[in-house]
């Protein structure tokens, strides 16, 4: 369970109130206008912002006092998910340990995961030598080699074409099954494709998660405004 216990996040004049819980293993999409606070919410879960009020917890572990690295949370950013000067193997290895020193066993594990996401034999390449889709796979592999239970996606596949993006979302769904996934999305099709539930972010509040099918069948005002 990912629980927001009366959390308030403030940035200048902007304020976001969150009181909800997300089931273990669920895929939840955050939808709303740009500037509504979707990325702010992810930053708070990841530990880049500390709440002004309230407590965020995962499976009973309180996060507020934990540094980003100590939280059971991995994150894929909009861009710059890979260090361009490090090899794919090194980049993915960082998900296992943060000091760039992999033992032989660890390196083998990383190679296996690379094969699993379709990047077998590409460990020695630099990210620039990969296609956009392959780079996304490498970033995903880094999340896979770790075992953190919450995964945050801040539109990491936005730059990919529709077919590639769908492929990546399916890969997320299958490979990360069992982990709690919170994703920001501008595209309702993304939510349709893999999200179990959707939270609407609007007017300084985050709604409780609603079943995706139910939501789109019966959109509340905030969502129909957004969808147009």
């Amino acid at each position: 369970m990912l629980i927001f216990d009366d959390v308030v996040l403030k940035q200048g004049d902007f304020s976001l109130s969150v009181a909800l819980s997300i089931k273990q293993g669920a895929v939840t999409a955050l939808m709303g206008q740009s500037g509504a606070g979707k990325s702010t919410l992810l930053a708070a879960i990841a530990g880049f912002l500390s709440p002004d009020q309230g407590q965020i917890s995962v499976d009973g572990v309180k996060l507020n006092q934990l540094s980003p690295a100590k939280r059971p949370v991995s994150m894929l950013f909009q861009d710059n998910n890979l260090f361009p000067h490090l090899s794919v193997l090194q980049n993915v290895g960082l998900g296992l340990r943060g000091d760039l020193r992999l033992s032989a066993i660890e390196a083998q594990h990383v190679s296996d995961v690379l094969t699993d996401v379709g990047l077998g034999g590409m460990g020695d390449r630099k990210p620039a030598a990969l296609s956009g889709g392959q780079q996304s796979r490498a970033a995903l592999a880094r999340v896979l080699v770790g075992s953190r239970s919450v995964v945050l996606l801040d539109e990491p596949f936005a730059a990919l074409g529709p077919a590639l993006k769908a492929e990546m979302l399916d890969l997320v769904k299958t490979r990360l099954a069992g982990r709690t996934i919170v994703m920001v999305s501008h595209d309702p099709a993304d939510a349709h494709r893999i999200a179990d539930t959707v939270c609407i972010v609007a007017d300084g509040c985050v709604s409780a998660p609603v079943e995706t099918k139910e939501l789109f069948a019966n959109p509340p005002e905030a969502l129909s405004d957004y969808l147009g």
């Binding site: 530990g47 980003p68 690295a69 998910n81 960082l94 943060g98 000091d99």
Partner: peptide, 13 residues
């Protein structure tokens, strides 16, 4: 910066 922090990189690394 954020990526490195979330990965738990030390300042040295």
């Amino acid at each position: 910066g954020r990526l490195a922090i979330s990965l738990g990189m030390s300042q040295q690394t």
